[in-house]
Design a binder for these strands. Structure first.
Ligand SMILES: [Mn+2]
Ligand SMILES: [Mn+2]
Ligand SMILES: [Zn+2]
Ligand SMILES: [Zn+2]
Lengths: 155, 155
DNA sequence: CGGCTAATGCAACAGTGTAGCGTTTGTCTG
DNA sequence: CAGACAAACGCTACACTGTTGCATTAGCCG
């Protein structure tokens, strides 16, 4: 049983994986980030912690975390995947992509209602809803009326 | 005034661009495709028509078409943009990504209703809704109940 | 036709991600 | 704790998408 609810080593071991320096460090970085971050950002964070970070090993580590439900990945606006740690909750939420800083945010609290009927022959696996605009920490001209009223949005 | 409603040369000239062999051929290819296709697919189609296709020129041509409202681009599932010709209609619709063949389809007839409230501080530019699954021409195990009833979908 | 400039073609490069393969190292067993 | 085995690592090399710089070509306009 893990001492902390989010102990990287314990979570990795519980999935049947070997507890290595890279895996624990990467998972810890993802927990600390709090939002989906790119392979490159993970590498920089590993640098800051003095942990070696071979590019290929990092890719494989991130993929391993995803395939073992310790992380999920979301496509970024720049053709690079973003990864973030997940607990046990479902990954059914929209994402916000900042047009200025490129950061991606999980909108876990947002529960969008989508009503749609696919044309015949299309078999649905999953739906992805992403919003693009400016994040709270970026300056910009767009007026914010988000957070004040519930909008109908046309993608 | 154009002879045909969709005469590539006339459309290009109307935007103030020079009517070149590559531009007319690419726009014609996009019109014929009927769905968003990748840079590579455009190149193959140009091959079939005996039109030279330098990689860089093709990228620049596609970008020019997009920036002059003759095409729109949508991110594919494989980190490659897909381009398709547009008339004068708005580009406000969802897209379908086939997990098997990788093709992308514009769901122009689909008018999804999205109701959502963004957290405070996020300023919305646009929303993108994409469905992933199997397209009509791909075999697969997923049962189709699309096209029969209107579903609520959780992204 | 002649000139100006947009557009092209080519080379070189950057960023993301993958495949092969020999080496290291966790983990399990005795 | 020692040894064995397989998982994970680190390195090289590669594929693919897209961009930049610059000299050359070729639309377009008069
Ligand atoms: Mn997420
Ligand atoms: Mn479209
Ligand atoms: Zn931002
Ligand atoms: Zn398909």
């Amino acid at each position: 049983m893990p001492e902390r609810p989010q102990d990287p080593a314990a979570l990795i071991a519980a999935r049947g994986g070997r507890v290595t320096r890279t895996r624990t460090a990467v998972l810890s970085v993802l927990f600390d980030a709090g939002r989906p971050i790119s392979h490159d950002e993970v590498g920089a964070a590993l640098d800051a912690r003095g942990v070696s970070h071979d590019r290929v090993t990092l890719y494989r580590t991130l993929d391993w975390l995803v395939s073992h439900d310790l992380a999920h990945k979301v496509a970024g606006p720049d053709r690079a995947w973003r990864f973030n740690a997940v607990g046990d909750e479902e990954h059914r939420h929209a994402h916000f992509h900042c047009d200025l800083c490129g950061r991606v945010f999980c909108l876990e609290s947002l529960q969008p209602a989508i009503a749609a009927t696919l044309p015949s022959g299309f078999r649905l696996g999953r739906a992805e809803l992403s919003f693009h605009g400016l994040c709270p920490s970026c300056p910009g001209p767009l007026r914010s009326d988000a957070g004040h009223n519930r909008n109908k949005i046309a993608p």
